[in-house]
């Protein structure tokens, strides 16, 4: 058909975008929904099972220790600073900035993951002691797996940037990665309250 037809010419549109314009961002949101609702199920299960215990925590089990878990929570929150700066640098297409803040972020994240791995004994119970121990370990463990996945993803993105393979779209990926990191950290706050504070104060 020869061309008297009206056309919409899209060649002038950008080929990289950030946030809700970007398809990948929506996918990331989808995975946040999946993981967020898994953690919500953990919390619901926690309170559901709690009704079976009187006293709570059960028997001679002391409530969880607070120092190490709180430290690890603080480390997680601290890691939000480099995540924010990475995201800002990415939105400016500033490769040097992304490299710098990703590197800092990786150090803080790794510290947070190591602290988390050391955190299990602070629960003062074991997964096979009773149902309370099971759900406490599971919640902590599942969140740890999210941290590890996110750390791995950040390592890969850092590798892409440090090995000079970054294209424009990778800036968008770096920003999405930071966004996901925010989710993983912030979602822990209510769970920290659930697992560590409610046995003591509620």
């Amino acid at each position: 058909m020869s061309e008297p037809r009206a056309v919409i010419d899209v060649s002038g549109l950008p080929d990289v975008a950030f946030g809700s314009k970007n398809a990948v961002w929506w996918g990331t949101l989808g995975f946040m929904l999946i993981e967020g609702s898994t953690l919500a199920i953990c919390a619901v299960t926690y309170f559901y099972l709690r009704r079976n215990f009187d006293p709570f925590p059960p028997g001679a089990t002391p409530p969880p220790d607070l120092p190490l878990p709180t430290l690890s929570l603080l480390a997680l929150l601290a890691s939000l600073a480099p995540a924010t700066l990475t995201s800002r640098a990415a939105k400016r297409f500033d490769a040097a900035g992304v490299r710098r803040w990703l590197a800092v972020g990786l150090v803080v994240m790794t510290a947070a993951v190591v602290l988390r791995a050391l955190e299990f004994p602070a629960l003062n119970t074991r997964w096979k002691s009773d149902a309370y121990g099971s759900i406490a370990w599971f919640t902590l463990g599942f969140h740890l797996s999210l941290l590890v996945v996110n750390l791995a993803e950040s390592v890969v993105i850092a590798a892409i940037f440090f090995l000079g393979r970054a294209e424009r779209k990778h800036f968008s990926d770096a920003a999405d990665d930071a966004c996901y990191w925010f989710f993983v950290v912030l979602v822990w706050v209510p769970l920290y309250v659930t697992v560590y504070l409610t046995p003591r104060f509620l």
């Binding site: 898994t38 199920i41 997964w127 096979k128 009773d130 149902a131 370990w137 599971f138």
Partner: peptide
């Protein structure tokens, strides 16, 4: 998926999510 992982871990690593004797349900 979460429930089936609870079930699998009750069976494979000895958690007690669904075991009433240990406060599960």
């Amino acid at each position: 998926a979460t429930a089936s992982i609870f079930l699998a871990s009750d069976r494979l690593v000895g958690t007690h999510f669904f075991n009433p004797a240990e406060g599960g349900d």
